[in-house]
Structure formats: structure tokens, C-alpha cells
Design a protein around this nucleic acid. Sequence first.
DNA 1: AAGGTAAGCGAATAATTATTCATTTAAGCG
DNA 2: CGCTTAAATGAATAATTATTCGCTTACCTT
Lengths: 190, 190
Amino acid sequence: MKLKDDRKVELIYQAALKLVARKGLAGITMGDISREAGIATGTLYVYFTGKDELINALFACSRANSVQVAFRGYDASQPFKPGFRTVWMNILRYKLQHFEEVVFVEQCFHSPYITAETREKARELAAPFFELIERGQQEQLVKQADTSLLLTFIMGALNELVKQTHYSNETLSKRKIDLTFNLCWDALKA
Amino acid sequence: MKLKDDRKVELIYQAALKLVARKGLAGITMGDISREAGIATGTLYVYFTGKDELINALFACSRANSVQVAFRGYDASQPFKPGFRTVWMNILRYKLQHFEEVVFVEQCFHSPYITAETREKARELAAPFFELIERGQQEQLVKQADTSLLLTFIMGALNELVKQTHYSNETLSKRKIDLTFNLCWDALKA
DNA sequence: AAGGTAAGCGAATAATTATTCATTTAAGCG
DNA sequence: CGCTTAAATGAATAATTATTCGCTTACCTT
């Protein structure tokens, strides 16, 4: 008996991400995905029941990935600012390196594909970010404003920075990164 | 002879915007648009040569609208900060009131519909915003950083705020708006 | 008021795209 | 090694969707 190949799922994901970043969710077909992945169209249906499931699975996977790396190297016993900086940098680095996921997730948000359930699971993943900001507020280092508002502000700015960087296709210099972190910090700080 | 009806174009635009905000660019068909607009599918082709042209036209129109209102009430002879505040508020108000345009423009950016030409015209429209930030820099009120970086940061944060507000469907209180303006200002200020 | 012209219509058609399926291929197992 | 079973294939089919077209309706002109 022949077994399913986990690397093939990854191949399909990469193909879909690449195509969505290039042509948007509105521009991809199952045929495009299979061609890009170098497999037959029918094979997509071995791994997913259909286009909807493929996209929901990829969405869930993309969200999970980006959260997973965010707290790498973060140590709650460190002072807040450097800890926050670590997380902020992790997110920025991840988004720059996985630009296609950024675009894909954005496009999915207003699409007929993502189910309420998938959406809800994505929301739950954001909990650690809330806790991080709340810690800063407890230590009087961060403004005493609605936590969700602060997070939204930071994430929006970060996301746009990543997109802008990509369009202008220049690499973000260390200097510019530090500068942008300062913008964020100045915005947040009490 | 019967003449084309400008109000009908507006009707079509509104229908398309509403549907894209609800189901994304990937989720709309010409049939959906005509049904939502209350006209026959064939009539769409009286006003537009096809789906591509319709979407390009709506994109151009959406971008132009949002820029047009931004400088309403701005007076360059006023001090910088209140002037900047006026523009910032105009943008926020417009985006909140025209949420559907925000989503539509975002979805269009990575789509097969928007042509390079349409994209370029949209970019040119942003010139006044650059000038505004540059003025603040000349007056030493705004950080001496890459103007484009500062703009990106602000616009990204604003956009995300609008989206988040919409999802949580609460109206943004005066207090929250002032708070967010302060985040922006603290980020920008030298 | 009548004629001409283009808007408006929506069913029919064309084009595209998702999905299925009969067949082939290849991995695991005895 | 052969046998079994599921993956893999891609052409065929089904479903969806863009676009066309013959016809009707309403507006403008004279």
C-alpha cells in the first residue's frame, strides 16, 4: 500500500501561497495550484475534499505558524522592553520571510472560503499577545488604553510596513527596522 | 434616444462594494452584482465592457474618493499639529463610513483584475500625504525618518483600527479616537 | 405625437473551472 | 518477488459564471 506524503501537502500549500500572493484569492484555480505544485489536479482531492477545505486548512496553518515563532527567545523574567522587542522582531522577521502568508491571510479574511469556526480558532491564537501588552500595562510602561486597541495599532503598522517593503522591493535595513521599532515603542509607552 | 444613467453606475458600484465586503473579491459574480443592484445582468455590459473594467473603474473611483476628502478643512497657514489632526480625522471618518471601500481596495491590491496602469494612478494620488509629513519634518515636529516609512506606519495603523472597529461592531468613541490619535502623534513626533 | 436610438432585459451560449472517475503507478507487506 | 492497496494521473463531466444577443421599453429629438 502506498501512503500519503506529508511533503506533498507542504508542496500544495507553497503553490497556493505563491499564486495568491501573485494574483489574489480571486485569481487562483485548482488547476493553477496543481500545475504550480507539479502534481495532477486529481491528486489535490486525495489530500483535501475540495477547494474550501484546502483554503481553510492553509489559513489555519498560516496563522498557527506565525504565532508559533513570535515568542521564540522571549523570557518573561527579563525586563519588559527587551522582551517586547524580541517578540516584535520575531513577528517582523517572520512576516518579511513569509510575505505570501501575510497576503493570503489578509485576502482570506473577507472571503467566502473561511468558515466561522476557522475564524474563531484564529482569534484564540492571539491570546498570548494580549497577555504581553497587559504585562507592560501592569508595569506602567505601556499606556493604560484598551489593550485590543494598542495591539491593533501595532499589528496594523507592522503589517503595512511588511507590505510596503515588499512592493518597493528593497531589503529593510537594520537602521530602518530600529527606527520603526522606535515608532511603535513611542506610540505605546506611557 | 435614451441616455446612460449616471445614478446606475453608482448603484452598480454600491452593489459591488457591499458584496466584496461581505464575501471578498473571490466571492462575487456578475450575476450577484446585478441582482444586488436590482438590474439585469446584461445591463452591466452597457456600462462596462466586462468584469475587469468594472473592477478597475471602481478601484480608481474608491481611491480618488478617499483622497479627495482627506484635506477638507486643512489650512496650510495653520500650525502643523492641528492641521495634521484634521487630515488624520478626515481619513479615519471616511474609512469608518466607507468601510466597504477599505476592504475592496485591500482585496484588489493582490488580484488579477487591477492593471499596472490603474495601480500607478493610485500611487500618484498619495503625493499630498507625503507633502504633509514633509512639512512636519521641516518644522522639526516630526522624526527625521524616511517619509514613506512614517506614512506607511500611520496608514497601516489607521486601516487596521478601522477594520478592527468594524469586526467588533462597536462605534469608536470620541475617547478612543483621541487615544489613537495620540498613539500616532507620539509615534511620529520628533 | 411619431420615429429613431440606445438603454434595459434575461434567457441562451460560451468559457472557465471544480470535481469525478476509470486507469495506471508505486509503495508496503508477506 | 508477486500481491494488495491506496496514491497518482489527467481526460471527461458537472457546475458555475462571464458574456452575448434578439427583443422590448423608454427617452429624446423634431
